[in-house]
Nucleic acid binder design. Sequence first.
DNA 1: GAGCGCCGTCGAAGCGCTTCGACGGGGGAA
DNA 2: TTCCCCCGTCGAAGCGCTTCGACGGCGCTC
Lengths: 334, 334
Amino acid sequence: MVKITDVARHAGVSPSTVSYALSGKRPISEETRQRVEESIRELGYRPHAGARALASSRSNVLALVVPLRTGIHVPVVMQFAVSVVTAARRHDHDVLLLTQEEGEEGLRRVADTALVDALIVMDVQLHDGRLPLLRALDRPSVLIGFPAEPAGLTCIDLDFKAAGELCVEHLAGLGHRVIGLVGSPPEVYVRETGFAQRVVQGFTAAAHRNGIASSVHPCEADPAAARQVAERLLRERPALTGVVVHNEPVLEPLIDAFEALGLRVPGDLSVTAICPDELAARVRVPVTSIAIPAAEVGAGSVELLMKKLGGTPVPQATLLPPRLTVRASTRPRP
Amino acid sequence: MVKITDVARHAGVSPSTVSYALSGKRPISEETRQRVEESIRELGYRPHAGARALASSRSNVLALVVPLRTGIHVPVVMQFAVSVVTAARRHDHDVLLLTQEEGEEGLRRVADTALVDALIVMDVQLHDGRLPLLRALDRPSVLIGFPAEPAGLTCIDLDFKAAGELCVEHLAGLGHRVIGLVGSPPEVYVRETGFAQRVVQGFTAAAHRNGIASSVHPCEADPAAARQVAERLLRERPALTGVVVHNEPVLEPLIDAFEALGLRVPGDLSVTAICPDELAARVRVPVTSIAIPAAEVGAGSVELLMKKLGGTPVPQATLLPPRLTVRASTRPRP
DNA sequence: GAGCGCCGTCGAAGCGCTTCGACGGGGGAA
DNA sequence: TTCCCCCGTCGAAGCGCTTCGACGGCGCTC
């Protein structure tokens, strides 16, 4: 193994000079730097990560905690993960993958052993058990998702409330006056997952603001449930002309169910969804939708962490604005 | 930060004794060990990962390289990743996540800086550019998937050839005499991805062995392509009564297409697939299928690495036997 | 009863890097 | 011309852990 002393000897300087040439933490003359770089290249030198971590008390590794739970759309998690890794690499950091299964103990372990410098935690619940720990940890962290009490934490996510509103505004702008929200499975609300409730809030507020009749229906993630919800919605609101869907797996079955009940999409019924673009686009009737900006959230969380590691203060909440993509499933009220 | 010397002082022993009590590399009296453990608990001691890595030249971290490419079923990748992490933790190791985008340079970096002790590489191509590097690296690696020339490497995967055969045997056992294979998109074969070709080999060999008329059809991953393939298959083989599908996204569209052409599944046509169980089970007609045993492959790759790290020789090839789950889509030939 | 060997523990020497204080020399200010 | 300061570099001291050789003391053998 070639080490820093080898490089130093080869370049005719001291090890500390090599270190400074590499880190830029002290001025080094252009000429010396070039010579050092040349030696590094010739010898194929790579600084030993452990030694570096020990001496500098920086591992240049971030922890990423991913959820395993059902009801979470896996491809979106993967997108997050990939964008986190990519963004981390831009800052010369690597990413350690943790599963939620490891729980608090896992977080504490990687933090306390100095394996990682900072943590990114996905899928934060409203009353997440990990919050006190994250607040107490001596390492910075960023949460993807918003807990009920975000004080002392740094959070980032799509602005789900605004997303709920935007769906309604879109439908309202098309003249729809009676709409429904088909939401996530009941257990998601019971678990008090922030984003599901926020969609409801935005939906309800915007409907009220626009003088629109509306109702909200949680829905299990299977076709039969979708059919039931569709029937119930039509029974309770025969004048229904707009639906917002926040439940990936039932998007297509729900449209099928409405059509089976005699409603054409978008002829009789306009549908918007909050779901990945890839899903919205491949449904039989491509659906007007708001996507989870997974890549942006991932990259954003890394940027926040880097700032925190650098000592720059960051906002407690970062809400990414929803963007609605209009597709074939919405149209003005007949 | 509490360090090993603090523990040593608290327990009234030397630091080396604490180290040995922790690692078990030298005999320590039961009494001393208990005292040390008690001190560790009381002080909340956690060994510093960097210091440990430096002194022992073991980081206890594995690298996992995940693919990003299109045509790869994302949830399966995620399953791999999760099972790798879980298995690694059982051996007191962590997992560093790398994207394929980082390429050879990324592999070399994490290996040469001693950030990781060993590597797991997913989605290996038949003529993968990373093979020479992996062979040359001074750290052990395991490939998920089989390259054309696996000499000097350790590989693990589902036995796709046997999977192709098993599908055919199943259909043959039900009396089917004319069958087709609907395969992956053409580019997958062009790219020379091993597993797709192996399914074809197994399929063809078993069909021949059983005196069955067969043909193979690559298929793009969209419903329109599925329809075309269905039509073509029926035109070329009007007596067709069995189909093997190795292409996740078109499984359902293909069944729809056949039914639209007047063939009932499984009444007129038996269908088997090689795809995740989760997909096979949720199709309108649940499909008899062979799943990618993602969890087994992930856990298996970790076990192989641990053996290699421990100096135990391991087989060059580990082929996991396919398991066929019979569902509603296959039935004896009328 | 003397000697041998083994068990359990200690001390010290690194592992490879960063960082801090120090220092020589050259340029600018007075 | 002298003094000061700053730029660029060096040397040495750790960072916290593992590991190797050494060494007492006990039990056993002969």
